[in-house]
Simulated assay, not measured.
Amino acid sequence: MKRAALVTGAARGIGAAVARTFAGAGWEVWGLDLHEPGDGSPFRGFLTADVAEPEQVRRAVATLAEGPGRLDVLVNNAALQVALPLLETPPEVWDRVLAVNLRGALLCAQAAYPLLKAVRGAVVNMSSVHAAATSCSIAAYAVSKGGLAALTRTMALEFAADGIRANAVLPGAVDTEMLRDGLRRGHLDGADEEALLADLGARHPLGRIARPEEIARAVLFLADSEQSSFVTGHCLTVDGGALCRLSTE
């Protein structure tokens, strides 16, 4: 039987790249998102749910359990980014970002746990470099991703008794719709989107931003028990060296 993956936030961006990468490696991939996937999607099945809503998550995972009945990895990728200064962030916006980005990972892990336990599977959480260093006007997102890194460590400790590994990937700037939407939040000058992307890339030691597939390959490594069997509780930074450079340079 093929190994199976459940990827949240799978309709586009990094989530879609993760789905394609896993499918290309021979995995059976299930997607979960509020949005429908595009044409040519690689999914064995696609589940529509809001990861912040416990009953929707429970129903979605129950559908998976009744279908293939196997789950080797849960990739908690679903995320919401809102670009607002801290003092201008309404409580309801703050709550929604943390509900999707942080509570959603908890709810999905709780629902998927029996399936993961049965095969001594893995959880990969999509955190961010904003868990380690951040910018202005992105507080709710940064806090949620910092919390997700901490949640990963807790999962690693509490899930180890059942043979389940838990790790996180911390991407830097990745060419996705989310990044492009956030380019104008005020920390970069200029008006042309491609010029902004080029400028952002030039700020990295490697001289560019990442492609979604580069993040997906890191996720696959952490998911694959043959490649990373003794890795748990780890936060793997994939940022082109961005966090290596002192801000005072």
Score class of each variant (00 low, 15 high):
112 A>E: 10
96 R>P: 12
81 Q>P: 01
118 A>R: 14
107 L>H: 14
82 V>M: 08
110 Q>V: 13
117 K>R: 15
99 A>D: 14
151 L>Q: 04
113 Y>P: 07
127 S>M: 04
115 L>M: 11
85 P>D: 05
116 L>G: 00
113 Y>F: 15
99 A>N: 09
149 A>E: 03
102 L>N: 01
143 V>K: 03
125 N>M: 09
106 L>R: 14
142 A>S: 15
144 S>F: 06
122 A>Y: 07
120 R>N: 12
92 E>L: 09
119 V>L: 06
139 A>P: 00
111 A>V: 14
124 V>D: 13
112 A>R: 07
92 E>W: 10
103 R>V: 12
116 L>K: 11
136 C>D: 11
148 L>H: 02
75 V>R: 01
133 A>Y: 07
100 V>T: 15
77 N>F: 03
140 A>R: 01
98 L>A: 06
150 A>I: 07
151 L>A: 00
131 A>L: 04
144 S>L: 05
147 G>N: 04
108 C>A: 15
96 R>F: 12
83 A>S: 13
141 Y>H: 06
106 L>P: 07
134 T>Y: 11
134 T>Q: 06
91 P>Q: 10
123 V>F: 00
111 A>Q: 12
129 V>T: 14
123 V>P: 03
119 V>D: 08
83 A>P: 02
128 S>Y: 05
109 A>K: 02
103 R>K: 15
93 V>H: 08
81 Q>F: 04
140 A>F: 01
137 S>M: 09
110 Q>S: 13
93 V>Q: 06
132 A>C: 05
134 T>H: 08
144 S>H: 05
139 A>V: 10
78 A>W: 00
113 Y>N: 13
128 S>V: 02
95 D>H: 13
104 G>S: 14
88 E>R: 10
117 K>L: 09
125 N>Y: 10
80 L>N: 03
76 N>K: 09
134 T>L: 05
110 Q>L: 15
129 V>Q: 03
152 T>W: 02
118 A>D: 13
114 P>G: 03
145 K>G: 00
108 C>R: 01
128 S>M: 06
96 R>C: 13
94 W>A: 10
80 L>C: 04
143 V>P: 04
108 C>Q: 11
90 P>F: 10
81 Q>A: 12
135 S>T: 13
106 L>S: 11
105 A>T: 12
88 E>T: 03
145 K>Q: 03
146 G>Y: 04
129 V>P: 07
92 E>G: 07
139 A>S: 15
115 L>G: 09
145 K>M: 04
100 V>F: 12
146 G>S: 13
102 L>R: 01
94 W>K: 09
137 S>I: 02
110 Q>T: 14
102 L>V: 04
87 L>W: 11
129 V>M: 08
128 S>K: 08
146 G>T: 10
101 N>F: 00
100 V>Y: 09
85 P>Y: 03
75 V>I: 15
145 K>I: 03
119 V>W: 08
128 S>C: 03
80 L>W: 06
